[in-house]
C-alpha cells in the first residue's frame, strides 16, 4: 500500500467522508477514491455500486483484478429534543449500531439523570452543530414540537443532505412547518424529504413504540441510500 494512500484514506475517515481504497491485485498499486470523484467505464459502475451498498469486494474488469475496500462513516443519529421518546430511542439506537447525540436547550429536559451515558447537549442545536456538523451519514429526528428549537436543526439537516430527516407533529403541524421552512429559503423538493408524521406507520402510540417507528424509518433510509436520491423520498424503493 502506498503510504500516501493510507494517510489520505485515514484523513477522510477521520472527517467522516466516504472513501474507497482501490487496489490492483496483480501489482498492489492503489489509489483512494472519494465519493463523487469521477471514475470512467465499468470500474466507475463498480465504484458507484460499492459506495451505495457499502460492500467491499473484488471485481474483474478488462482482465484486471481490482479490490474495492469501501469505508463509509459510522451512521449517526442526532435527536433534537430530550423528550420521553428520546429516552426510549437512546438505548435502541445504540443497540442498532448508531452513534447517538441528543440536543435540547431546555436544561430541565436535557438532564444527565434522564439520559445516563448519552452524548447529551443542553444547548441550542446551532451551537452544537457548529462543532459537530451534520452530514450525509447522519439522520436527524426533530422531536421537541417547538419551532424555535426544531426548525433551525431541520434547515441544517436539509443543507447537509442528511440521509434521513423526520419531524414530530401532525399533518397540520407539518403543513405550517413547511411554510416556515420555505419562507426561510428551503427548496420544496428538499422539504418533501422530511418525514412527518415521523416514523413507520405501525400504529405506534406510546413513546417507546414511537421510538421503534422512528428507528425503523432511519434504518429504512440508511439501507436505501442512493435509491433515495433518485426519487426524493425513498419510500417506494425502500418498501
Amino acid at each position: 500500500m502506498d503510504p500516501l494512500s493510507l494517510k489520505k484514506l485515514n484523513a477522510l475517515r477521520r472527517e467522516r467522508r466516504a472513501a474507497i481504497l482501490l487496489t490492483e491485485l496483480t501489482d498492489g498499486r492503489d489509489r483512494v477514491i472519494r465519493e463523487g470523484d469521477p471514475v470512467a467505464g465499468s470500474l466507475g459502475e463498480a465504484v458507484a455500486r460499492a459506495f451505495r451498498s457499502g460492500r467491499s469486494g473484488a471485481v474483474e474488469i478488462d482482465g484486471n483484478s481490482f479490490f474495492l475496500n469501501v469505508h463509509l462513516p459510522p451512521p449517526r443519529l442526532v435527536v433534537i429534543g430530550a423528550v420521553h421518546i428520546s429516552q426510549a430511542l437512546a438505548p435502541m439506537a445504540r443497540i442498532a449500531g448508531f452513534d447517538l447525540t441528543i440536543i435540547d436547550p431546555r436544561t430541565a429536559f436535557a438532564s444527565p439523570d434522564r439520559f445516563p451515558g448519552v452524548d447529551l447537549h443542553a444547548e441550542w442545536p446551532d451551537e452544537v452543530l457548529k462543532s459537530a456538523p451534520l452530514d450525509a451519514y447522519t439522520a436527524l429526528a426533530a422531536l421537541t414540537h417547538d419551532p424555535k428549537i426544531d426548525d433551525p436543526a431541520i434547515l441544517a439537516a436539509l443543507k447537509a443532505e442528511c440521509f434521513y430527516i423526520g419531524a414530530l407533529g401532525s399533518r397540520k403541524t407539518h403543513a405550517k412547518r413547511v411554510e416556515r421552512l420555505m419562507a426561510a429559503g428551503a427548496k420544496s423538493e428538499a422539504v418533501a424529504r422530511i418525514e412527518a408524521p415521523i416514523g413507520l406507520d405501525i400504529g405506534a402510540s406510546t413513546p417507546a413504540e414511537i421510538a421503534v417507528a422512528v428507528l425503523g424509518s432511519v434504518i429504512a433510509a440508511l439501507r436505501s441510500r442512493g435509491l433515495m436520491a433518485k426519487d426524493g423520498t425513498g419510500k417506494e424503493q425502500a418498501a
Binding site: R13, R55, H71, L72, P73, P75, G97
Partner: peptide, 13 residues
C-alpha cells in the same frame, strides 16, 4: 458489533 457497523463505519477509533 452489529451488521450496520460492518458496512457503515469500520472503526475509526
Amino acid at each position: 458489533m452489529s451488521d450496520t457497523n460492518e458496512q457503515f463505519g469500520k472503526q475509526t477509533r
